[in-house]
Amino acid sequence: MKKYLCAVPLVLLLCLSFACQDKAAMAELEKFRAQTKLEEQNLALVKRLVEEENKGNAEIVKELYAPNVKSYYPSGSTAPLSQNDAVELTKSYLDAFPDLNQTIEELVASGNKVTARINAKGTHKGDFQGIPATGSQMSVSVIIIWHFQDGKIVEEREELDSLGMMMQLGMELRPKEAKK
């Protein structure tokens, strides 16, 4: 019978080794799971931002953007917009295109960043960057990358097909006329 007694500590050791392995792997797994959860939360914030803007609510920018946000538009701009500038820019779009409707075509969350590819449609019913209302329907592509920190947007970079949009509003590109 004594030999069985010997087996007990061995089995316990085996148990412990399984448990240890489990603990290290579980810690790593928990890290991945926490990241996935964070990405889902950030995705939900972006969806809310777009939904609220579609309802004409420019104030949502104040709620979701950090007070010290840096908003780069176009994406390579070296003079980022402030939170207040971003609210005003959103307002100017909503004033010019009161029925502005953005459709999210692609949404990718990775770490603290969310990328969206958006198609924005609207009717040109108000002044837009000096162009009086034309009544034209415009449809323009937009790509934005947001950086999140503690549930707030701290950086935004945006590119939209501004040339395509301007052409739909009756503008065209011409060689600059020499100043006389």
Binding site: L163, M171, E172, L173, R174, P175, K176, E177
Partner: peptide, 14 residues
């Protein structure tokens, strides 16, 4: 930013 590109190449919107 195609518009910015064209503007830097001497074009303008009219």
């Amino acid at each position: 930013d195609v518009l910015g590109w064209m503007q830097q190449l001497g074009m303008e919107l009219k």
